[in-house]
């Protein structure tokens, strides 16, 4: 990659360059799908602390980061790890024990907040949550908001419809924009300039990326720009938003990447079991996070055999023979 436009970086270097103690950040994906796990484990290994995090419905990624002591403040709509843990376990523990400050929103509100950030407007309106505690109960105090220029002075604001009864909505909720310092996404395909092609569900990845000052992309496949430019209509994120591109096959493992591999239910269930017990959790972290120096070594520890078992069926896009359903936590 001699091209001066290349943003290709080693993941360790990309995280060291763009993620700092106290950064405001978000990660892409949804619960147990397309979380940028290689980057998550890198953040934990680098010992980055006091992150202010924004997610809609996340799971595996934020739970590991909370377990790794990296997050101090979290704005979130949902924290669940599929049937392995209907509520993320380290998230639950950290909130119950007051170790992190959490503020609740709905999925649509978080999505709109990223969209507002991407659009460059201070807020967007919705009818969601009128009359509920999502409006009434703040996770962050007014004093704390005043002290931190990176967060809005209020959580949510209800206003009368300034157009009267137009569109049959007498009142709306205004949700404040989010502009993270950095967002990390994992995608199926990216070129070395940073243009991304996501296959299947995009969740809120596009809004998250476009709202952020820096975007680190990890990808299954790194290609020449010419390949993605043959069908530009299939690309979602143009390179102008992206600061670094890292080629990390299986970079979302143990979460799923459509058409590449499935989530690993065995890993997620074993993780959920370890996460419930402090000693087991330290042993887990020593073995799979601190005991390896990069994602390649992590995957070796997991084992090639296991990775083969979760490989996606080329037609369906997921592993068709996973025998797992009844092994999870009761719904």
């Amino acid at each position: 990659m001699e091209d001066s436009r290349s943003k290709v970086m080693d993941l360790d270097e990309a995280v060291r360059t763009f993620v700092r103690d106290g950064s405001h950040m978000s990660i892409g994906g949804f619960s147990i799908s397309r979380n940028p796990m290689a980057a998550v484990y890198t953040i934990i290994r680098q010992g980055i602390k006091n992150l202010h995090f924004y997610v809609h419905s996340n799971g595996t990624g934020i739970d590991e980061l909370i377990g790794g002591g990296c997050i101090s403040r979290l704005e979130i709509a949902y924290g669940g790890n599929g049937k392995a843990a209907t509520t993320c376990i380290r998230f639950r523990k950290a909130v119950q024990e007051g170790e992190i400050q959490v503020e609740d929103y709905s999925n649509y509100q978080m999505t709109l907040r990223f969209a507002a950030g991407a659009m460059g407007v201070p807020f967007l309106p919705t009818r969601s949550s009128l009359g509920t505690d999502i409006i009434n109960r703040w996770g962050f105090s007014e004093e704390m908001r005043q002290k931190d220029p990176k967060i809005a002075g209020k959580k949510l604001v209800v206003v009368d419809n300034p157009f009267g009864s137009w569109a049959d909505a007498p009142r709306v909720v205004l949700v404040p924009a989010i502009n993270p310092d950095v967002t990390i996404l994992h995608v199926q395909k990216a070129d070395y300039q940073g243009t991304c092609r996501i296959l299947g569900l995009t969740y809120a990845d596009i809004e998250q990326a476009k709202a952020s000052r820096h975007v680190i992309v990890t990808c299954e496949e790194l290609v020449e720009p010419g390949e993605l430019r043959e069908n530009p209509g299939l690309n979602q994120i143009p390179f102008i938003h992206v600061s670094a591109v890292c080629h990390v096959p299986y970079g979302a493992y143990p979460t799923a990447v459509y058409r590449c591999y499935d989530y690993d239910p065995d890993y997620l269930i074993a993780y959920a079991k370890a996460a419930r017990d402090e000693r087991l959790f330290r042993t887990y972290q020593d073995q799979f996070i601190y005991g390896v120096s990069n994602h390649g070594e992590f995957l070796e520890r997991v084992g090639r055999k296991r990775l083969g078992e979760i490989k996606a069926d080329p037609t369906r896009g997921y592993a068709t023979n996973l025998q797992w359903y009844d092994r999870g936590e009761a719904p």
Binding site: G80, C88, S106, S128, G139
Partner: peptide, 20 residues
């Protein structure tokens, strides 16, 4: 809410859909 006995996953899209 600020220091719960039991924390659950949260709204997800539940509040949105019940609102709409």
């Amino acid at each position: 809410y600020s220091k719960p006995n039991t924390r659950f996953a949260g709204s997800g899209g539940g509040c949105d859909v019940a609102s709409f």
